[in-house]
Nucleic acid binder design. Structure first.
Lengths: 224, 224
DNA sequence: CAAGTTACGCTACGGCTCGTAGCGGAATGA
DNA sequence: TCATTCCGCTACGAGCCGTAGCGTAACTTG
């Protein structure tokens, strides 16, 4: 991720780019984003905070949006999926921790900003996918294979393309629901919501529509 | 929706505001948004296209983002939920038509742009909720009560607050998944995906993980 | 060590958009 | 007719954009 425009010729000649400046710029970008928001985020402001000349920014990033993608991508790598013992608990856990990440001002502001720009910029879309989205699918893969080992989910179908479709679907449903709940509906993703969402995801609409709370772990699908 | 800043004293004295100008401005906003995208959308450009003085824009809308909210809100009212006979078909239908709406350039660009701005603007968040989000929950309410009449879903729980929670949850899951799939993952929402998503929503993770396609309507949850 | 190469900080610039102010005129109600 | 409100037009200071040019700093190669 760290390497912006010219994919690094690992050791070129001449003065190397300052990695300290890189770090300072990305940190300054996150900080400025928190305070002023996307639309009032200026390159001059970032350069000032980073203690760097404005020209240095333009030498490394062609557009504000690309800079912001790199500035935020690292935040998403914090997400982990510790084994909580059963599929339901794993789902609730990842929902809670993803929501916590989205609650941080720099995360949500930057994420939505670059997504907005990406609707009219194909290259930026690709960059977002590589730097942020695709890397989080590991969470789904982990949780899924764990659940399969426990016997909570059927094994992979013979066609690997089918497996990929299912993983993508699950990822879109989980990530989409959390993002929509917290950033669009603007409601908190608390434990109650996570529990209800996990019920819906595991057992479907019928189960989620009953007021009865599933008692502890007893309510796993009986198909397995 | 139509009335921007001063909530209309229905008949004041003096020259009334031109509703034709209102329409022209909102249409010009959508058109300009398609061509230049959010970040290069300028008030001068909108005014020029609408055949209106720039000052007129500022007399009615305080910020670009508020103007865009109003410009796009009407597009979402096109969504309908015709009775397709069963819950599964209704879900697939609304997913497809919502995705078609999001495929239109002015819709996706504007929606993501105002959402991005809203992360640092509480008033704008409220405006979005009123003008766009909350009005679409009617779709969930309709589909849900229909499914209840068909016996596909259990009746409402006694606590109305619980019902509201469930409706909100379903809305976030459906809308979030479609938005995430089409705008973040940048993949098409086609009939295959809609069918797979509906299976997941109706029957849960276990059913969606099998490669076997549910044959026609036979695969409804057997709890009802 | 010297030469060659690359990155850096600084300054300055034209071009553009922003949001506001002030004016004369147009459209309505009293 | 008069008061009121909106409109279109012009003009303006302010701020940011992205680039160019300069002298200097850091590092590689011979």
């Amino acid at each position: 991720m760290a390497a912006p425009d010219p994919p690094p010729a690992p050791q070129r000649r001449g003065r190397p780019r300052s990695v300290a400046a890189d770090r300072a710029i990305l940190a300054a970008t996150r900080a400025a984003l928190v305070e002023v928001g996307w639309s009032r985020l200026t390159m001059s402001e970032i350069a000032l905070r980073a203690g760097v000349a404005k020209t240095t920014l333009y030498r490394r990033w062609a557009a504000k949006s690309e800079l912001v993608v790199d500035a935020v991508a690292v935040l998403f790598d914090e997400l982990e999926l510790p084994d909580r013992g059963c599929l339901r608990a794993d789902v609730e856990g990842v929902v809670i921790s993803f929501a916590a990440l989205l609650r941080r001002p720099e995360t949500k502001t930057a994420l939505m900003a670059v997504l907005a720009e990406s609707t009219t910029d194909r290259a930026l879309r690709a960059r977002i996918r590589e730097a942020i989205v695709d890397r989080q699918k590991r969470l789904v893969l982990d949780g899924r294979s764990r659940a399969q080992q426990r016997g909570e989910l059927p094994p992979d179908p013979p066609d690997p393309a089918e497996t990929a479709r299912v993983v993508d679907l699950i990822f879109d449903v989980i990530a989409g629901a959390v993002v929509h709940r917290s950033l669009v509906s603007d409601c908190p993703v608390d434990e109650t919501w996570a529990r209800q969402f996990a019920t819906l995801l595991l057992e479907g609409l019928g189960a989620a529509s009953t007021s009865a709370r599933p008692q502890s772990e007893q309510a796993q699908p009986d198909t397995f």
